[in-house]
Each structure stands twice: as structure tokens, then as C-alpha cells.
Write a protein that binds this DNA or RNA. Structure first.
Lengths: 196, 196
DNA sequence: GTGTGAGGAATGAACGTTCAGTCCGCATCC
DNA sequence: GGATGCGGACTGAACGTTCATTCCTCACAC
């Protein structure tokens, strides 16, 4: 169902419709029942393909979950880091991050749940982890910039990042709607968290 | 290994050493590998009992995970809600909650991880959910009291609660140590989140 | 103190089931 | 007719659970 826009670069070497269907089915089932709780034949059924077909596109169930993870973590990174406004103040960039988180979680709730619940899973490979690390690096750069400019609390950057991301995750898990009112209000709260 | 103090009431009807060993083994394995990722025979091995013995104490694997969940969620509730200081200001009670969270997560890291990762699991029964609801009710009462007294932001209570608990969870997941410095600093940040 | 036996607790091999992954026959193209 | 992509029955392994059997404890007789 919900897919991120195809990568704008190169006529995607491996985007067959079946592959997409498998990735989408896996995403929603993993989000719903977790990786270990989801049998491969069930993924095949929801994707509308035979069980064997999955293994034409993915080496193993583990390779599949890594593909799902990378796809969505990359989309999140694109929105948070790559599309961050150039030449903005730390306060403005913070607003961008917060709103981008909300719009991602609203557009792709299954993807957000999936990323959240599989964040520290043992079956994620180095490449998958690297995408997450890139997001963290972007956040760390923003915090350091804010601290230099005097607009952000001089606590350990990882501490502030953990609290802000954690607070956002808490909001989504609690099922709060992404209404303009809630987005604005939570952004104000979150900013107070990091303001000096 | 790590067990909460036995309930102070009645000479616990069903606290045999084997039962305790099974609960402890299940806790650490579920925290490490999740419910679906943990085979029952592995729990038996770590507990030092036969596989069949588990079924003398628990009806099923699902009944076991519910018992683990209830035990630790109850201990957390005891510390947060039941031991909250009477007649304290909202600010003082907030401090109690924040420090109790830290001390729980430090004393029983496996329990905190387990509770966090199994929070919304489908196999939790009504009784297990009720313990979590009691904690939330206590938090809601605190927020309302703080709002009446003028010391807390007049946002939706569930919104504030979700952000504060979420921020704390983010800190623990990030692996920050519970040093007095970190506890005090994060408490200040978290309070800014809810202060008007 | 020692021997005996009954009864409950504990065991782990074995059961049926379900899983991840394979393989082969068929349909569809050129 | 050959090549390719696909489906789903199939397989061996691993799962949760059971149960025939063993082990341990303790009351009681002597």
C-alpha cells in the first residue's frame, strides 16, 4: 500500500511490482506482529505472491527485514537530514526536524512503528545500522550548532537527542493525532526541553 | 537473579524457588530476544529446570509472559504511585516520579527493557493492562493537580505524560548512566517540558 | 536410628504443529 | 521450442506442549 517515492536516481535496478508488494506486506506485518511473530507464508499471502517468490527477491527472511528497514530509515533520513533547510537558525532547523518527524509518522504510521520497534534488533546488519547513525550524526551537528550559537542548553548532545526523539516516540505511541494544534504545541514543549 | 522484594502481604501462596527461577530466566530472555524470539526450552535451561516443569507453574508460554509483565509492572507502580510523597507540591511529586523511574531502570535494567518492548503486545491480557492503566491514572492526577496549582503547562495531560515518559525511555535506550549528575540534569530538562 | 512405601514434584524424550526455505511443474513470453 | 518467472506442495528443523517415568520427601513402623 504505502510506499515511499522511488529513488529519483537511476531507473531503479530492482523495482518489480512483486518486490514492492512483498516489501509493503512485510512492513505492515512486521509492524503489527514483529519480525519473529510473522511467518513468511503470511507475508506471501498478503503480498499476493507464492511463498517461493519471496526467495527470488530476497535471500532470506533476515535479508527481507533489512531491506524493509533500510528503505524506510533512508526515507526518514532523506526528510530529516537531506531536506534540512540550508542557512537556517538552529531554532528554525529544529522546527524542520520536529515537523518532518510528524509528517513522516502521519504519512507512514506502519513504517514509523516498524522502525521504532525494530530499532535495536539483533538481525539488523551493518549497512542498516549505518543509516540510523547518519540521522544521529545530523542531529548531533544541529545540537552543537545550537550550543555554539547560545540557543541550546549545554548538556551532552546525545542526552538531548535521546530525550527529544524519545518524547516524539512517546507521542506517536500514545496515538495522538498530528493536528496542526498538536504539532505546534508539542514542538513548543520539545523546544523547551533543549532551550537554555 | 534480580527479583523485586516479595509482596509484604500473605505468605505468598505460590512462591517456590523454581517458580522464581523460571520468572527470572524468562525476564532476562524476553528482554534480550523478545517473546516470540525465545524458545521455551531455553527458558527452562537458564532456569535450571526441565522443560516440563515450566508447565507445572504456568498454563502456557503466554501465561508466563503475562506473569512476568504483571510482576514488574506492579513493582514499578508500587514505586511510582504507591510511594509518592503525601502532601508534596506538584514539583516535588514530579521529582519523585522522575527519580523513581531512574532508580527502577538502574536496579532492574532487564525489567525496564522488557516492560518497554512488550508494552503494547497482543498477548497481554486485561489484568496485565490494568496495572499499566493504574500508573497512567496516577500520572494524570499529578498533572491535573499541577495545572490547577498553576505550576504546569495547560496542555492535554496525556500529551505531557507521553512526552515525559517517552523522553525517559529514550534516555534509557540510549544507554545513559544513572549518575547523580545525569539524573539531576535530565530532571531539569523534563520539568521544562511540562512547566508553563 | 533405620527401613519402607506412598504421593507429589520434576523430568526430558516424544508428539503434533508450524516454521523457513527448496524444488519442480506450469504458464507465458519471444 | 527454449528461456524465464512464478506458485504452492513439499521438506527438515524447530517450535510449544504433553506424559510416562523417575526422583525425592517425609510420615510412620519397628
Amino acid at each position: 500500500m504505502a510506499s515511499p517515492p522511488p529513488p529519483a536516481t537511476v531507473a531503479s535496478i530492482d523495482s518489480s511490482e512483486k518486490r514492492e508488494a512483498i516489501l509493503d506486506a512485510a512492513l505492515s506485518l512486521f509492524a503489527e506482529r514483529t519480525f519473529n511473530g510473522t511467518p513468511v507464508p503470511l507475508i506471501a499471502e498478503r503480498a499476493g505472491v507464492g511463498a517461493g517468490t519471496i526467495y527470488r527477491y530476497f535471500e532470506s527472511k533476515e535479508a527481507l527485514v533489512n531491506a524493509v528497514y533500510r528503505r524506510w530509515k533512508s526515507e526518514l533520513k532523506r526528510r530529516l537530514v537531506d531536506h534540512a533547510p540550508k542557512g537556517a537558525t538552529p531554532r528554525e532547523e529544529f522546527r524542520h526536524w520536529w515537523r518532518a518527524l510528524w509528517s513522516f509518522a502521519q504519512e507512514y504510521p506502519e513504517a514509523f512503528t516498524f522502525l521504532e520497534t525494530h530499532h535495536h534488533a539483533a538481525y539488523l546488519d551493518a549497512e542498516s545500522r549505518a543509516v540510523g547513525a547518519a540521522i544521529n550524526e545530523g542531529a548531533r551537528a544541529l545540537v552543537r550548532r545550537g550550543q555554539r550559537a547560545g540557543g541550546m542548553r549545554r548538556s551532552d548532545a546525545d542526552l538531548l537527542i535521546a530525550m527529544v526523539f524519545g518524547a516524539f516516540t512517546g507521542l506517536v505511541k500514545a496515538g495522538l493525532p498530528a493536528s496542526p494544534r498538536v504539532v505546534a504545541e508539542t514542538e513548543a514543549c520539545a523546544w523547551e526541553l533543549v532551550a537554555p
